[in-house]
Amino acid sequence: MRGPWREERGRDDSGQVAVEFVGMLPLILLTLVLLWQCVLIGYTYTLAGNAADEAARAYAVGDSCGEAALRHLDGAWRSGAASDCRRADGMAQARVSIRVPVLFPGAISFPFTVDGEAAAVWEGDER
């Protein structure tokens, strides 16, 4: 027996949810990819800041700046990293630049970098 909510012509809406899901699937996937890319950009900022902080600490006591910065980066992130340290006004200042990956670290990168900067009080010898 058919209820009053169905048409008597034999048409029903079975499969409609599947059709709508297939139509929305590209938009859902695009949204997930964009969210993942935003997470990677944020993580790159975190890594650059941490690497700069470690490089500034190491440089402040007379150690190598570049080695300290790269020591705190994983292999995929290390390939596009550059560090620079200098001493100014009694402070050891470090700057680390990391390229932002596209979807997966180590594959391809955007043509811009994320910079992390940090400073620590100079504790090395007075030169």
Rank of each mutant, 00 (worst) to 15 (best):
V17A: 03
G62L: 11
V22F: 01
R71M: 12
L47E: 05
C65G: 05
E67W: 05
A51Y: 09
Y59A: 03
R57I: 05
N50Y: 12
L25N: 01
S97Y: 11
W36N: 02
T44A: 07
D63I: 11
Q37M: 08
V102N: 12
A94R: 06
C85P: 06
L35R: 09
S83R: 14
A58P: 12
A52Q: 03
Y59M: 06
I98Y: 13
A56T: 11
R78F: 02
G75L: 08
T46A: 13
R57E: 12
T31M: 06
R78K: 05
C38Q: 10
L70A: 10
Y59C: 06
Q37A: 09
S79H: 14
T46D: 11
V39M: 00
V33Y: 06
R86L: 05
G23K: 00
A76L: 00
G75H: 12
A94T: 13
E54N: 13
G62N: 06
L40N: 02
R87Q: 11
A76E: 02
R99A: 13
A60R: 09
V17L: 01
L30W: 01
F104D: 02
A60E: 07
A82C: 08
A48I: 11
G80F: 09
L70M: 11
V61P: 05
A56Y: 08
R71G: 10
D89H: 02
V17M: 00
V102W: 15
A92Y: 03
L34H: 12
V33E: 08
D84R: 14
P101H: 14
T31I: 04
A55E: 05
A82W: 12
A58G: 00
S79V: 15
A51I: 08
I28Q: 07
Y43P: 03
A55R: 11
G62V: 15
R99I: 14
L70Q: 11
R87T: 08
F104A: 02
S83I: 14
D84K: 12
H72Q: 10
G62H: 10
E20R: 02
D84A: 13
Y59I: 05
C65P: 08
V102F: 13
L35A: 11
I98S: 14
D84E: 09
G42H: 09
G23E: 00
C85R: 10
Y59K: 00
L27T: 01
Q93M: 05
H72M: 15
G23Q: 00
H72L: 13
L25H: 04
S64D: 10
L30M: 04
L73A: 15
R57A: 05
C38R: 05
L70F: 15
N50I: 14
V39G: 00
D74V: 06
V96E: 11
